[in-house]
Simulated assay, not measured.
Amino acid sequence: MGGRFLSIGESMVELSQAGDGLLRKGFAGDTLNTAWYARACLPADWSVDYFTALGDDPLSQDMLSFIEAAGIETNNISRIKGGTPGLYLINLKDGERTFSYWRSTSAARQLAADADHLRGTIEGADVIYFSGITLAILATPLAVDTFLAELRRAKAAGKQVVFDPNIRPRLWADKKIMLNTISDGARAATLVMPSFDDEADNFGDANIEATIARYRALGVANVVVKDGAKGVTLDFEGARSHAPAVQAVHVVDTTSAGDSFNGAFLSRLVTGSTPQEAAIFAAEAAAIVIGHHGALINPDLLPKT
């Protein structure tokens, strides 16, 4: 029996170096990346939807076409008259990537502007996924409150609400507001999937046990802590387990390591695998992804079982 997976956040226009001073256009974003890998790994009886706000410009239309071509539904995406998507440029120097962003006027900042539309979109989903970046780019504190209220409502209704804190301090004007909002996001979730490095750097967690304890204290039933090459620690209703990382044959681009893990993990978890089984599958998928250029790789390259 299938279901509906909904990912909410910001997709951006990506400009990367194409040689001879030329740039290549693409589309990516943490929540879109996770939706992409969830779609690639879920069976056909599951639909995958992406929700954001886009403009009415040609770039927004190109992005819609790109998302739809991946088999991801876009029917609920809001369109903002006169709006445009955010944009980022990948800079390469000696093989190292840095990023320049233009997103202050991104239409995605208005994704919670229509509370009724947001509610209807969430009500139609079985699994709702969002991230700390989703919270960070919302235009106003009222928009954050509106968004989190709908997620709390979904959680109370028994839906699976999944949150990756994906902490990016440069997106937040104030560290205290950032930490409080991330914590509020966790309170609205049934499953939180943090990266330990982010939690240690920003919340000061001394170890993974501290990260799990903090999120459990916020009312989160299940926690999956990603710790790079050290693997993943899972705590589901207090039952603790560990899944090792899978070593990539050759690391080329780690941009979407966490996003691909999340999408692959959730694809297995919601279709009946145990958390341990889901984590083992997701680790294999992430190892393949980081062995290729770009955030989004050909789905045919991913593991099938």
Rank of each mutant, 00 (worst) to 15 (best):
Ala286Asp: 04
Leu179Thr: 05
Ser183Trp: 06
Trp102Ser: 08
Asp205Tyr: 06
Thr271Phe: 05
Val251Met: 10
Gly83Phe: 10
Asp114Cys: 09
His117Tyr: 06
Ala107Asp: 03
Pro85Glu: 06
Gly9Tyr: 00
Ser106Arg: 08
Asp174Thr: 07
Thr52Asn: 09
Cys41Arg: 05
Pro299Gln: 08
Asp197Asn: 01
Ala28Val: 11
Ser60Asn: 01
Leu89Asp: 05
Met178Phe: 14
Gly258Pro: 06
Pro43His: 05
Glu284Val: 14
Gly258Cys: 04
Ala245Met: 05
Ile137Glu: 00
Lys226Phe: 12
Met178Ala: 12
Leu32Ser: 10
Ile280Met: 09
Ala136Gly: 10
Gly83Tyr: 11
Ala248Lys: 02
Val220Ser: 10
Leu59Gly: 00
Lys159Ser: 08
Glu237Ala: 15
Gly3Met: 14
Ala112Asp: 01
Asn180Thr: 10
Lys230Glu: 00
Gly263Thr: 13
Leu23Asn: 06
Phe281Glu: 03
Ala154Phe: 03
Leu135Glu: 08
Ile212Ala: 05
Asn298Asp: 15
Ala112Tyr: 09
Gly272Pro: 06
Tyr37Asp: 07
Trp36Asp: 07
Phe265Ala: 04
Lys230Ser: 08
Tyr215Asn: 10
Asn33Arg: 13
Thr134His: 02
Asp49Leu: 13
Leu269Lys: 08
Leu23Thr: 05
Ile182Ala: 13
Thr254Asn: 04
Ala69Cys: 01
Asn75Ala: 15
Glu150His: 12
Thr305Arg: 02
Arg97Asn: 11
Lys176Ile: 11
Gly238Thr: 00
Lys304Thr: 12
Arg79Phe: 05
Glu284Met: 12
Ile288Val: 14
Lys304His: 12
Gly86Thr: 03
Tyr37Glu: 14
Gly21Arg: 12
Leu59Glu: 11
His250Tyr: 05
Arg97Val: 15
Gly83Val: 05
Glu237Pro: 02
Asp201Lys: 06
Ala35Leu: 09
Ala173His: 00
Val224Arg: 01
Val192Ile: 14
Ile167Glu: 02
Gly291Pro: 00
Ala40Leu: 07
Thr31Asp: 01
Ala282Lys: 06
Arg168Met: 13
Thr233Ile: 09
Arg24Phe: 07
Glu284Gly: 14
Asp253Trp: 07
Gly263Leu: 05
Val232Lys: 02
Ala108Phe: 05
Ala286Tyr: 00
Ala278Pro: 00
Lys159Phe: 03
Ala156Tyr: 03
Asp57Val: 11
Gly2Lys: 14
Pro169Val: 05
Lys226Ala: 12
Ile212His: 07
Ile182Leu: 15
Lys176Gly: 03
Asn76Phe: 04
Asp49Glu: 13
Ala286Met: 02
Ala206Gly: 11
Val192Glu: 04
Ala38Lys: 10
Ser131Val: 11
Lys230Asn: 09
Ala139Trp: 11
Gly204Glu: 00
Ala125Gln: 04
Arg103Asp: 10
Thr190Phe: 06
Gly26Glu: 00
Ala143Val: 14
Tyr88Trp: 04
His242Lys: 09
Leu234Ala: 02
Leu171Glu: 10
Asp205Cys: 13
Ala28Pro: 01
Thr255Pro: 01
Ala143Arg: 08
